[in-house]
Amino acid sequence: MVTLHGACAALCGAGILIRGPSGAGKSSLALLLAAAPDGAFVADDRVACAVRDGRITAGPHPALAGRVEVRGQGILSAADLGLAVRSEAVLHLAVDLVEAAPRLPEPPSDADILGIAVPRLVLDRGARAAGLAPLLVRAALRKLGP
């Protein structure tokens, strides 16, 4: 098992690992995804990842389970925010939050997490600021199929 800096949410049970530098919006995106009717909050800040049956599972660090940091608000309970909470999710997608990306980029290479390839989506600040991140995450999951 390894602990990664990031956040994790699930849509329709599919785990989404969100990575990026401090202040990039990892927690915010996880909350937006978890707030969807088919969403759930998994982890914030430290995501515990392990290989199980050839797939990556993600869950919260025990000290942070069910809690999320919201800038300017502090550490909050995901349940108090009205979010469904999952103790674990199988990762289907890694989302990397970056400052800038090319206007018409090539498809990103997969993320290597614990030696296993996980499909990857790169979102720049402009897409996040426009509120497109949840839609783009859903589109990426749809492309992966069932």
Rank of each mutant, 00 (worst) to 15 (best):
V42M: 04
V42T: 05
V42C: 08
D44A: 08
D45N: 03
D45Y: 05
R46D: 02
A48L: 14
A48E: 15
C49H: 06
C49K: 03
A50P: 06
A50T: 15
A50S: 15
V51N: 10
V51H: 02
V51G: 01
R52A: 15
R52G: 07
D53N: 14
D53G: 06
G54H: 08
R55P: 02
I56M: 04
I56D: 06
I56G: 09
I56Q: 10
T57N: 08
T57S: 13
T57Y: 01
A58N: 03
A58I: 10
A58K: 03
G59L: 09
P60T: 09
H61F: 02
H61D: 14
P62V: 02
A63K: 12
A63G: 11
L64D: 14
A65H: 12
A65S: 13
A65P: 08
R67E: 12
R67G: 07
R67D: 06
V68K: 05
E69V: 06
E69I: 00
E69W: 02
V70F: 09
V70Y: 06
R71D: 10
G72V: 09
Q73T: 11
G74H: 04
G74W: 04
G74L: 11
I75G: 10
I75P: 06
I75V: 15
L76T: 10
L76F: 11
S77W: 05
S77L: 01
S77M: 02
S77N: 03
A78G: 08
D80A: 15
L81G: 01
G82W: 10
L83I: 01
A84G: 12
R86C: 12
S87G: 15
S87K: 12
E88A: 12
E88H: 06
A89D: 07
V90Y: 06
V90I: 14
L91R: 01
L91W: 02
L91F: 04
L91I: 09
L91K: 03
H92I: 04
H92G: 15
H92V: 09
H92W: 13
L93K: 02
L93F: 08
A94T: 13
V95Y: 09
D96R: 09
L97W: 00
L97T: 01
L97F: 03
L97R: 04
V98R: 12
V98Q: 04
E99G: 13
P102H: 01
P102C: 07
R103I: 13
R103A: 14
L104R: 13
P105V: 04
P105S: 05
E106D: 14
P107G: 04
P107F: 05
P108L: 03
P108T: 00
S109P: 12
D110R: 00
D110C: 00
D110A: 15
D112Y: 11
D112C: 11
L114H: 05
L114V: 11
G115E: 00
G115F: 00
G115K: 06
I116E: 07
I116S: 04
A117M: 09
A117S: 14
A117F: 05
V118K: 03
P119D: 06
P119Y: 10
R120C: 11
L121T: 02
V122G: 07
V122A: 09
D124T: 02
R125L: 13
R125D: 08
G126S: 14
A127Q: 15
A127P: 08
R128V: 15
A129D: 15
A129R: 15
A129N: 13
A130S: 12
G131F: 07
G131S: 04
G131Q: 04
L132P: 02
L132T: 02
L132V: 00
L132Q: 15
